[in-house]
Design a protein around this nucleic acid. Structure first.
Lengths: 147, 147
DNA sequence: AAGTGTTACTATCATTTTGAAAGCAATGTT
DNA sequence: AACATTGCTTTCAAAATGATAGTAACACTT
C-alpha cells in the first residue's frame, strides 16, 4: 500500500493517516493549537531537524491544515496558521490527550483547561444520534455499497 | 527529540505519538477494532510488509494496546486481541474518522453505524464538565507546576 | 509416507526517509 | 561595517522501510 492507494481508500481514518501518519505531523498540529506559528518556534519546541520541519509544514499546508501568512514584508517572513480544517482537528488531539492521560499519566502532565471555568476539561466522545458514549454500544464499520 | 525524550514529555499527546506516530500503528488498531486478530489478516488488509508488521505488532503489544492469545496449541498459533487500553482508544479512531468524513469525504466512504439503531453515528467530542462541544470554548494547555 | 497447504513469521538487501551540522539569503540593529 | 534574526537549503551519514524469498511447525490429502 502506498500513498496513492491510501488516499483512494474508502476509510476516512486511512485517508487522514496518509498524511498524518508520521512522528511529527500531529505534534506540529498540537503546537499550532497551543499557539505556535513560526518555523523556529516549532523547531525549538519539537527539536525537529529543519529539513524535516520544512517538509512537514509543506505537507500540512498542501493538505489544508495550515496556511502560510505573511507577517512581515521587509524582510519577507511567513508564519503558519491553522485553517478551519486544522482547527476542527482539535477534538482528535484532545481525545488522544485524554487517552494518554488515562494510560500514560505517570509523572507531571500537561492538562487542558477551560479558560472560563479554569477547570481541567474531561473530554468524552459521544454519538450525537443516541447520546451514548462511544464504546458503550456496539458499532459496525460499513463498507460503501457497490464495493 | 528522540523516543526517550518523547516518553518523558509531560504532554500526554506526545506520549501517545511516541509509539503511534508512524504509517501503520493506527491502521492496525483500526483493523483490530473492526475485528481482525491474525497476522495474515492484518497483512492482507493493509498490504504491509511482514517485517514491518512483526515489529508494529510487537510494539503495540509491549505498549499494552494488544495482547497475544494462543488460539491453537497444535500447531502453536497466536493471535492479537485488543486490551482494555486498546479498546479505550476507539474514541480517538472515531474522531479521526469524523474529521476525515468531513474534510476528506469525496467518493465512497466507510461509515460507522450503531448496530442497534442501524444509523450512522455522529461522533462529537464534548467536555463533560461544561457539556460544551470541544472547540466551542477557549481552552488552555497548562504545564505541570514546577516545570 | 510423500507431497501440498496453512500460518506466523525471519533473512536479506535495495530503496527511502530521517537526522545532524553547516551554510545561505534578506534584512534589521548597533 | 559587523552582528543578529529568521526561515529556510545543502550535504551526507544513519536508520527505517519495503519487496521478495524462505523457514518452521504442523495438518491434510492422496
Amino acid at each position: 500500500m502506498n500513498y496513492k492507494n491510501i488516499c483512494a481508500d474508502p476509510c476516512p481514518i486511512a485517508r487522514c493517516l496518509a498524511f498524518l501518519g508520521d512522528t511529527w505531523s500531529l505534534l506540529i498540529l498540537r503546537d499550532a493549537h497551543i499557539g505556535l506559528t513560526r518555523f523556529d518556534q516549532f523547531r525549538k519546541s519539537l527539536g525537529i531537524a529543519p529539513t524535516i520541519l520544512t517538509r512537514r509544514l509543506a505537507t500540512l499546508t498542501e493538505e489544508g491544515m495550515l496556511e502560510k501568512r505573511l507577517y512581515s514584508e521587509r524582510p519577507p517572513r511567513e508564519e503558519y496558521v491553522l485553517t478551519a480544517a486544522g482547527r476542527d482537528f482539535l477534538p482528535v488531539l484532545v481525545m488522544i490527550g485524554a487517552w494518554g492521560h488515562q494510560y500514560r499519566g505517570e509523572g507531571p502532565l500537561v492538562r487542558i483547561q477551560d479558560v472560563e471555568t479554569g477547570e481541567d476539561i474531561k473530554p468524552v466522545a459521544i454519538d450525537a444520534v443516541t447520546g451514548a458514549k462511544i464504546g458503550t454500544r456496539p458499532l459496525r464499520f460499513v463498507l460503501p455499497t457497490g464495493v
